[in-house]
Design a protein around this nucleic acid. Structure first.
Length: 487
DNA sequence: TCTGGGGTCCTTAGCCCT
DNA sequence: TCTGAGGGCTAAGGACCC
């Protein structure tokens, strides 16, 4: 009954770090760590060279720097990653209409639905060809897993990493899975893993033997049943091409805990505006407003409020978030604030309910009424700043030189030098051409001049306000054809 | 220098209604 | 009129994923 291994899972290898290495020849073969560079940053991706030092994703940056002091630490450049991802997804969609992206660097493809594979041999051929096409189009490597189900295809691509392909033949699933640790299965994280370990269940084989009833007793109905099926290699989830978003949210972690209630309120309003910008950009409105607060001791609480109808009005979201904040005790300090909207409506619509609500509630809270911070209210645009893709508002992420960055009430007050020259970003110099920022501080910025297709380049240092130096867009990773190239 | 950001899904509990 | 069961909705928290 089990289908041919025609579900493909693609996973790009150390995606962000590999993209940076492809863009910056001088970093190839060296440990590269991409992530938040502020005092509370974590690693998003570490190159395989950096992993040898024990650096891995989700690790605090400080710890990574101790383990790998000579690594290159770069701020993520989502414009670049998104453009590479778009190119890869194009290649996948050429194989099948059923492509399910999971993130910028991962996707499922139903090869049978595309008519390009029907058995092991044809599936393997498609997978190998795809890997070659990805390398030719982007210069990056991806690992491919092929199996009869999504879960198994994902396990296979994980086993194939880096830069490999693995196909799980029908009938061999259980024997293959049995010795693997329970954490191999999607849905088993640290908490469930520990829970199972205490019950003496450490491998997928143990899980299968434990039986459904026992797992349901331990983990609850939904999780228990799902896990037991997976342990048996059973998974009939379909590849779904279109997924509707269920919520939109933004959050900021501050370099220094916030104590001032006025500042906290100001930040919540700013986040509300950003959230609405994203909501509108996605063509949605939403009914439930969620405030998230992480306190000084890392305890996290959420407060939510459901409106009578969906809204995409920044004033309405701001006010709801403000009301929710009123019910939260922030003494002791706040390290993170977030604002989200869920209960999304299919498309933006004029929302009479919300407008009525706004009209009923006098705009007293607007211009500084209840201590609203200056400059926050009424920011008319609420439009997302394009540039660095949602990151521009991240406070103090570039704050490396000890300046009291996060203590400033307004983001524009951050040191302009650090704001303009984040490590790893692209620049262009009038005389020396394209390069990237290797570091900045004390009024200087150091730039390495090289291109993805050039040999490693030279380093030069400039004053941060050098008029000949400008931020620029990322270059493509593969050299574009020159006008004279075509015969 | 302990612990990001943007999501999804599940569970539990309380309330309201039938 | 009282009581209980069950469903739907809301709120809060937690686990997990990339």
């Amino acid at each position: 009954m089990r289908a041919a291994p025609t579900i493909l899972h693609l996973d790009m290898d150390a995606f962000y770090a590999s993209a940076e290495q492809a863009a910056k020849p001088s970093l190839r073969g060296k440990p590269v760590i991409v992530g938040g560079l502020g005092p509370r940053g974590v690693v998003a991706t570490a190159s395989y060279e950096a992993r040898r030092f024990g650096v891995h994703s989700a690790m605090p940056m400080g710890q990574a720097r101790r383990l790998c002091p000579n690594g290159a630490y770069l701020f993520p450049r989502f414009t670049l990653y998104r453009s590479v991802s778009d190119r890869v997804m194009e290649l996948l969609r050429a194989l099948s209409p059923l492509v399910e992206p999971l993130s910028l660097d991962e996707a499922f493809v139903d090869l049978e639905a595309g008519g390009v594979a029907f058995d092991s041999a044809s599936a393997r051929a498609v997978g190998e060809r795809l890997r070659a096409e990805i390398r030719a189009a982007t210069g990056l490597s991806g690992s491919v897993g092929l199996a009869g189900s999504k879960m198994l295809a994902k396990v296979a691509s994980e086993e194939a990493k880096p830069d490999g392909l693995m196909l799980i033949e029908p009938g061999t699933e259980r024997a293959l899975l049995a010795p693997m640790p329970v954490r191999t299965l999607p849905g088993v994280g640290p908490a469930t893993g520990e829970h199972l370990r205490r019950a003496g269940i450490t491998t997928v084989g143990d899980l299968a033997e434990a039986g459904e009833d026992e797992l349901v007793r331990m983990l609850g109905r939904s999780h228990g049943v799902a896990l037991h099926r997976m342990a048996l290699g059973l998974d009939d989830r379909a590849v779904v091409a279109e997924r509707d978003a269920k919520s939109v949210s933004v959050e900021d972690t501050f370099d220094v805990d916030l104590h001032d209630r006025v500042r906290i309120r100001f930040e919540v309003q700013r986040l509300a505006d950003r959230c609405v910008g994203r909501l509108r950009a996605s063509g949605h409105s939403g009914r439930t407003i969620v405030l998230k607060v992480r306190r000084y001791d890392f305890s996290t609480l959420t407060r939510s409020e459901t409106l009578r109808g969906p809204t995409d009005d920044p004033a309405v979201v701001r006010e709801a978030a403000g009301r929710l904040l009123d019910g939260v005790d922030t003494t002791g300090g706040v390290r993170l604030l977030g604002v989200g909207v869920s209960g999304l409506a299919d498309y933006t619509q004029e929302d009479l309910f919300a407008q009525t609500l706004a009209a009923e509630q006098p705009p007293a809270a607007e211009p500084g009424g209840s201590g609203g911070a200056p400059g926050a209210s009424g920011s008319p645009g609420a439009s997302e700043v394009p540039g660095f893709l949602g990151l521009p508002g991240v406070p103090g992420i570039f704050g490396v030189s000890g300046a009291p960055v996060a203590a400033e009430p307004v983001q524009e007050a951050e040191s302009p030098a650090e704001r303009r020259w984040p490590a790893g970003s692209d620049v262009r110099h009038a005389l020396y051409g394209p390069g990237w920022v290797q570091g900045s501080g004390i009024g200087r910025v150091t730039v390495r001049f090289e291109q993805p297709w050039s040999p490693p380049g030279r380093v030069r240092t400039f004053l941060v306000d050098d008029p000949e130096l400008e931020p620029s867009d990322p270059l493509p990773l593969i050299e574009p054809p020159q006008p004279g190239d075509v015969a």
